[in-house]
Design a protein around this nucleic acid. Structure first.
Lengths: 246, 246
DNA sequence: TGACACCGATGTGTGCTGACATCAAAACTC
DNA sequence: GAGTTTTGATGTCAGCACACATCGGTGTCA
């Protein structure tokens, strides 16, 4: 009936609903009917049902017989799912999401650096040293695009080198944070000299297998990162997830 | 046509396929056809398609026109999804999964304790102190079931009290780790006196708003936990996720 | 007369099916 | 070998039957 389109109907439906739920347009408790969604999205039941099933697996909605499709409260969402994170970053939850990610990075990256010093393959260690030196040069030259690119790869290598697949999976989120910092002008024109040194320290320590030192240097980087980013989530209220008693 | 059943067909299909993929029965690159899955699971196209869509959102499979449904390599799976974690814990990836979770906990819990000391609501702080005392009593009495229950609630409260929803979301995984430790006999008959003291230290420090001290004490707990659990993942090879160049 | 239990109507999610559209791999033609 | 056609898989649609939670009416008993 319709002509060709770039993204599939399924993808569009998931995107449409997910963004509106996470974005706060559809509040928790809001009930939708499958039939109503068909009309709204101009798609058939299969598409709606498959999309709802995906959103259900993300914890965004639940389906109840005789009631409909109900939007779940935010604390039921899977905060580690890339889709949920993307929707939150695009909507009003942006500040809180950035803070969560920054705090997670602060916890994980030092641990990852320590593990990388113990476990990373040799090739990765030497590349890390090279990149830290290139970051210093790009930083001194004020070449921020190159610096950003190197920075992203640096942190990705540390996470990957930990040999922990959960840490490695955070690469995407870290990339988001790093690009966001530059895009939103929370980055100084020239990187701090200390930050450049800390990156070199991390690389050196990992190359030398000195886990303790790698963790320390990574902690320094994260402290500085938090300091740079914190203005973007000022006054964001914290949410305390209830602990359900069993 | 069919009679009633306890779990939905959709749920069964997701479970069946997910467990077999994560469990390694269906290796990466293996291609299935939707029609073939209908026969295998004795369900209709709708059920198969909705299940495949969910698995797709977990990164377990991809669908390619003219080819079929292809199993993706493990590094594409979402390692934070509760379903994936459960399947890994049930299958041959159990050791590696436990190590990943333990390392993640080691990184996150000290950070969560520090944040809780800064942000947690008063009520949560005092409950934490109460629980740490009850843990000491149960520990001295050798009442391990009660101790486990209190231990779980203790760590859940710390994660929740951090006010970081990503940390709070790890409650389920931590619970899994704690119960696993007792069930698999990796727990001493009486908890170590030092461990009991550390739990009280964490609670006290959070109650006093001393983030530094809370982090330190939580680190001690995690060091001990790792020492207790590490036998269960000895000789598990580490996997280094490739960092794709953009 | 009023309170309560029962029970059937109703509507909505669940599941099944046949048909057609779409698109990319593979086979074919020149 | 390049371009075209065929083919076979997923994508999408629409209609139907069924299970079942909810609601409201009806009957019974106090």
């Amino acid at each position: 009936m319709l002509t060709t389109m770039s993204t599939s109907l399924h993808h569009r439906a998931v995107e449409h609903l997910g963004a509106r739920i996470v974005g706060g347009v559809l509040p928790a408790g809001h009930v939708m009917l499958a039939e109503q969604l068909e009309e709204e999205l101009k798609v058939s039941r299969s598409v709606v049902r498959e999309a709802v099933r995906v959103l259900q697996s993300l914890g965004l909605v639940e389906t109840i017989k005789r009631v409909g499709i109900r939007v779940l409260p935010a604390h039921r969402w899977n905060p580690f799912d890339p889709l949920v994170i993307r929707w939150r970053l695009a909507g009003e939850g942006r500040g809180a999401q950035l803070r969560s990610l920054a705090e997670l990075r602060s916890a994980v990256e030092p641990a990852a650096a320590e593990l990388a010093a113990q476990n990373a393959p040799q090739k990765l260690r030497s590349e890390l040293v090279d990149i830290s030196l290139a970051m210093r040069d790009a930083g001194h030259a004020g070449d921020m695009p190159t610096f950003l690119e190197l920075d992203i790869r640096f942190h990705a290598l540390v996470l990957s080198g930990s040999g922990n697949e959960m840490f490695a999976n955070l690469i995407g989120q870290v990339t988001e944070t790093l690009t966001g910092r530059t895009v939103h002008g929370l980055m100084p024109a020239h990187p701090e000299e200390a930050a450049l040194q800390w990156h070199m320290d991390v690389a050196r320590a990992i190359a030398d297998g000195d886990g303790e030192k790698a963790r320390e240097a990574a902690s320094n980087i994260m402290r500085e990162t938090i300091a740079d980013l914190s203005p973007s989530w000022e006054d964001q209220p914290r949410v305390f997830v209830p602990v359900e008693r069993k």
